[in-house]
């Protein structure tokens, strides 16, 4: 009952997305991009891949992308997933790329099947995109990612709850001479200001040292005089 509803919602949503991308097309040089996501639920080697849905990349720069599944998970798929978990197998996904040669190129990755199962089909995809917009790799991560041997009821295994993240190649660091020079300038200025503020006269600057010195000298002199007088007086008394 719920499935057709969701499908319709999805269609509407896609339609809406499409419209919005058409509107923003002008300022997004990389444009709208759809990637097919395939997965394999048998153990392998050389497993058979089936389509799981598509990833719609709206904007690489703004990290806007989302996943739309082709439909709810079928009973066979659920059974295959359960078997895979029992066998301690791996869940594989891949994205076909429009290869240069005759052969179709894929980027692919995998995850322990239990991780997908126990997280009740909620996972996170990371699509790595290089500086010219080409897809270089994909990674998947269960949410939560560790397995603890939980049993998940079938009803929780119906819909994919997938988040997509785009990771684009960033510009590498460059030596930052500008801020350094600015800092040096600032420091120099501060120094210069410090020097400028101190253009008072010698006496104005050091009066606090000079005054006690003068007082001491003055006092010493008066003491000397007193002492001399006393001495003289003593001498006289003798």
């Amino acid at each position: 009952m719920a499935a057709p509803m969701i499908q319709m919602m999805m269609l509407l949503f896609i339609g809406f997305m499409y419209l919005s991308t058409v509107m923003t097309y002008e300022d997004e040089y990389e444009g709208l991009r759809t990637l097919t996501l395939e997965h394999a639920l048998d153990r392998g080697p050389n497993p058979e891949y089936t389509k799981r849905g598509s990833i719609l990349i709206k904007s690489v720069k703004k990290n806007k992308a989302h996943f739309s599944s082709i439909g709810p998970v079928t009973f066979e798929e659920k059974r295959a997933l359960r078997r895979l978990v029992e066998e301690n197998g791996i869940y594989r996904i891949r994205v076909p790329l429009k290869g240069t040669g005759e052969k179709e190129d894929y980027v692919s990755t995998f995850i322990p099947a239990c991780s997908v199962y126990e997280s009740a089909l909620s996972d996170q995809l990371i699509v790595s995109v290089d500086q010219s917009g080409e897809v270089i790799g994909i990674s998947i991560m269960g949410n939560p990612s560790h397995c603890s041997g939980l049993d998940v009821p079938d009803s929780n295994l119906t819909n994919w709850n997938t988040m997509v993240e785009i990771s684009q190649t960033i510009q590498g660091p460059v030596p930052d001479t500008q801020t350094y020079i600015e800092r040096m300038k600032r420091e120099e200025q501060a120094k210069a200001q410090g020097q400028q503020g101190d253009n008072r006269s010698f006496i104005a600057k050091y009066w606090m040292y000079i005054v006690p010195f003068v007082i001491i000298v003055f006092l010493m002199q008066s003491m000397d005089q007193q002492g001399g007088q006393e001495g003289a007086g003593g001498g006289g008394g003798r």
Partner: peptide
């Protein structure tokens, strides 16, 4: 797992 942890361009 073949995950690109970080990528930078010079």
């Amino acid at each position: 797992i073949g995950h690109v942890i970080f990528h930078a361009n010079h």
